[in-house]
Computed example of a mutant assay.
Amino acid sequence: MSFQARPKVTIHEVAAAAGVSIKTVSRVIRDEPKASEATRQAVREAIRQLGYVPHASASALSSSVTPVVGLLSLSLTEPSMLRAGYEYRMSMQVGAFAACQAVGFGLSLVRLSEQDRSPHFTVLIDRVRRREIGGFLIPSPLCERKGLLPALRSAGAHFATISSPAGLHDGPSVVANDREAMRAMTQLVLQHGHRRIAFIRGNAGWRDAEQRYAGYVDALAAAGLTLDQTLVAQGAFAFDAGRQCGQHLLSLSRPPTAIIAASDDIAAGVMAVAHERGLNLPADLSVTGYDDTDMARKLWPALTTVHHPVEQMAEEATRRLVALMRPARHAEPSTPAQLELRGELVLRQSLAAPGRPAR
């Protein structure tokens, strides 16, 4: 069977879709001033819908800032973490790419190893000076790497963060309401009648992990319950960590009736252990997660979780970064530099009252 390559979208098609001339499309791509904001929006929307990829040199002519966003990614070396969070990272890439594509920018994935503790981060800064990258999109926990943001700031490099701790910097950042969302999840578990509720934490020190644990603690305190540290397990955002912590918690002389996991990967590990032990989920054990990955709906029973708007967070953070890189063309005065997006509860069959199957 033979396949024919999809024809490449041309600037002529973009012009026709936007109802403007080819010259106008070229001006918008190059960020030249001779086009109204309404025209720019029409051209950008046509570029996005058609999937048009401008020639890199065309959009680079108009500014000293290279039209390429570098998305920093943590290069994990721990074997149990190598395959963890793939869907999370892909969602982030999709969101960042959508924002870049809308304005004719490129997206480059930049790996930063766990061992890279350079106080000056010269490798990253050199990529800006060589005009390979115009600015960096930095998710947690990388944005908390000691010295990273000050080094970029001192070098005049643009950056925006995702899930950075409050007060880390006053530039563009997008976070989710992790603490509030996990508090709501814990309250939901309480409303189902559970009182012996365990919690498996994510990676120690990571902003998302700490905020989610804080939400669990908040909900217990609001319900007048004493925090039982024997029901709290330190894990990591990985399936294997969920298995290990699940084994420990389910081996307690008084095991929990519900386990709240700081991520869907962790929850999947817990559910695997529960099935191996012959437990009936959710009658014998309720399990909840966080992230709402595609895997969550494929587990059995399907996982009650929190929808984490990762793709939207990356898209919004990238838009703010682009506005910082080229304020004369892409800044939106009504758009705040810092934004919090809401996670929402997703109710599925893995949560029920103790001793009862899900409805």
Rank of each mutant, 00 (worst) to 15 (best):
R179T: 06
G70I: 06
S91P: 01
I138Y: 02
Y52C: 04
N177T: 08
Q4I: 10
Q211L: 15
S163D: 15
T335R: 15
S26M: 07
D178N: 15
L109H: 06
Q312N: 06
Q115D: 11
S334I: 09
L72H: 05
R342W: 09
G70M: 04
V20A: 06
Q234L: 09
N177I: 03
V287Y: 00
F239G: 09
F136E: 00
I11F: 07
V346I: 11
R40F: 13
I259V: 13
L109E: 10
R30K: 13
R145D: 00
N203D: 15
I22T: 14
L339N: 02
R48H: 10
M325T: 04
L149N: 04
L137M: 03
A219D: 01
L152E: 03
R111D: 11
S163T: 06
P282G: 08
L285Y: 07
S2V: 14
T230E: 13
A337M: 14
A328E: 15
S57H: 11
I200T: 05
M295S: 08
G104E: 05
E344S: 10
I266A: 06
V14W: 01
L339V: 12
A17K: 12
T226E: 14
H275A: 13
A99L: 10
H248R: 15
I11Q: 13
A181P: 07
S63Q: 02
L71F: 01
M1R: 12
Q234F: 03
N177D: 15
I29V: 15
H275M: 11
A58P: 00
K23D: 12
G106Y: 11
A184M: 10
P301F: 03
R153D: 08
E315H: 10
